[in-house]
């Protein structure tokens, strides 16, 4: 088991190097460099050269990459060229805010997805199956940013029972007044994981149900629901793995929903950085989000191997 974990972590090193290279190349493909953004075009050339020298922009590319990588790896995520504040501080508080909606959303999506998927498979072929499968396929086809807008229109504009913008006061939500702000973004974010997980669970349950051990259980005289319990136990590892991946997708992909709800998370930070052309914030945010995604992947693999020993090859 430890060997499996070690190998999995070692394997992530070249991946992360590749990720950093992709981000660096994208960063360098931006038209103009930091000096162009920071100083007016009519400034004398000496000033531009001085700034380039200060940021090491006059060095050859591979030196620039190594320096940048070294800084990132040591936790120095750079300084925003817009606010002149260190990126790390801003990024981690934003990430915290994204976690606060992504985590409940993935749990909600997972619970609903497993329920719908299992019920659809249990009632396979009936109208209930069609209904639940329809809900699942709508979940993956809905543009969730649009759902967010529609929910704001219904619950904030027409009914006026839930706030449609912002996350309320800082800190951990404890009162209903505070939790209210979380309801719409969490439901909106949970739609995609709900659809994807329920489709996977339905397909898996149907596949496992045709296996021999299920026939044996039925021959033993076990009732339908008890058999379903055995089937679910076998379908759990892949559903859990998918839940982990979906959590990663939500962290990286919350930008659209955060824009709709004005949620001060990592997505909003990314959005702001793009429109301010704040390249240090942009590249650091993308790098950190991708790194988190890689780490989540490792955790998912290890957890899956813990549940199902057959995976530890």
């Amino acid at each position: 088991m430890w060997f499996f974990v070690a190998r999995r972590i070692l394997y992530a090193v070249p991946i992360l190097l590749g990720v950093s290279l992709v981000v660096f190349v994208l960063m360098k493909m931006v038209p103009g460099d930091a000096a162009d953004i920071m100083i007016p075009p009519e400034a004398p050339k000496e000033v531009a050269d001085m700034i380039r020298a200060r940021f090491g922009l006059d060095q050859p590319m591979h030196i620039q990459y190594l320096r940048w990588l070294q800084a990132m790896a040591s936790g120095d995520l750079g300084t925003s060229i817009f606010t002149n504040q260190p990126v790390a501080q801003e990024l981690f508080s934003a990430l915290g805010n994204t976690f606060k909606i992504a985590l409940p959303a993935v749990f909600l999506g997972f619970s609903l997805g497993v329920l719908l998927g299992a019920l659809a498979a249990y009632y396979n072929g009936t109208w209930l199956d069609k209904l639940f499968s329809g809900v699942a396929i709508a979940g993956v086809s809905l543009p969730h940013y649009w759902v967010g807008m529609v929910m704001v229109a219904i619950f904030a504009v027409v009914l006026n029972i839930l706030p449609g913008q912002g996350m309320g006061p800082e800190g951990f939500p404890s009162s209903w007044e505070h939790i209210k702000h979380y309801v719409l973004p969490v439901i909106t974010l949970s739609l995609i994981p709900m659809g994807i997980i329920s489709r996977l669970v339905r397909a898996n349950v149907l596949e496992i149900r045709s296996m021999e051990f299920v026939t044996a259980l039925q021959a033993k005289g076990l009732k339908g629901r008890r058999v379903l319990l055995h089937i679910m136990k076998n379908a759990a590892p892949s559903a859990l793995a998918l839940m982990g991946l979906q959590f990663g997708y939500l962290l990286g992909g919350s930008i659209l929903v955060e824009t709709v709800f004005n949620w001060p998370g990592s997505g909003s930070l990314l959005n702001l950085a793009i429109f301010r052309r704040d390249i240090p914030v942009l590249s650091a945010t993308i790098l950190v989000l991708a790194t988190i995604f890689v780490v989540i992947n490792i955790v998912v693999d290890v957890l899956q191997a813990l549940i199902d020993p057959r995976i530890r090859r």
Binding site: G18, L26, G252, G253, L256, F293
Partner: peptide, 24 residues
């Protein structure tokens, strides 16, 4: 396949946003 793994390390929306955000 290993170079594809690198691109896989980005959640899909993030990769598209990164490219569009950087290139315009």
């Amino acid at each position: 396949m290993r170079s594809m793994d690198v691109l896989y390390a980005f959640p899909s929306i993030l990769l598209a946003i990164a490219i569009c955000g950087m290139l315009g």
